[in-house]
């Protein structure tokens, strides 16, 4: 089994099975560019630095990839796909403990940076699920977003889309 070492921004090393990394478009590109798949290359001796991902977040990403090993990898932009996305129970349980906190957001940003489309989609879906049936101020409060609007500004936004009597 070929192992490739990922190095987080806080210098933690994570030896990861080569097969798992196919889920990440960014790492896959780096592997190709660094010739890590070549027989002559000692992949273990050439760690891949990931300066935008902290160790604890990378650990979660690897945990997610291990569970989803062998899943079909999504390709291309899925912008036009209107199909409803359902978050599987395992993923829901995986995201839930960190929901409403910065750890889940960091995991989402890492999924985007590492180009792990399935993780990004499910993670975004888990966030959007928390918006259901809520007002703007309720979403703001639950996620701890500072209120930057004056009452006048809020009223102006409401008015822009106001229904006529």
């Amino acid at each position: 089994m070929v192992l490739i070492t990922l190095v987080s921004s806080d210098e933690q090393n994570f030896p990861v099975e080569r097969e798992l990394l196919k889920q990440s478009g960014t790492i896959e590109t780096l592997i190709v560019n660094m010739n890590l798949d070549d027989e002559d290359t000692d992949a273990a001796a050439m760690p891949i630095p990931l300066p935008n991902v902290k160790g604890d977040v990378l650990e979660k990403v690897i945990q997610w990839m291990e569970h989803h090993k062998g899943d079909p990898v999504k390709e291309g932009d899925n912008e036009d796909n209107n199909a409803e996305i359902v978050v599987p129970q395992w993923d829901d349980d995986f995201f839930k403990p960190a929901m409403y906190g910065s750890k889940h957001l960091e995991l989402t940003v890492a999924a985007s940076y590492l180009d792990i489309k399935n993780l990004l989609t499910l993670s975004c879906k888990a966030i959007s699920n928390t918006f259901k049936g809520k007002t703007g101020p309720q979403i703001r409060e639950e996620w701890g977003v500072p209120n930057e609007f004056t009452p006048e500004e809020e009223e102006a936004i409401r008015k822009e889309n106001e229904w006529s009597e």
Partner: peptide
Amino acid sequence: TVSLRTTLRLVCS
């Protein structure tokens, strides 16, 4: 969809 746009706009600037 009408109120959704406003709802999201009202979260933050």
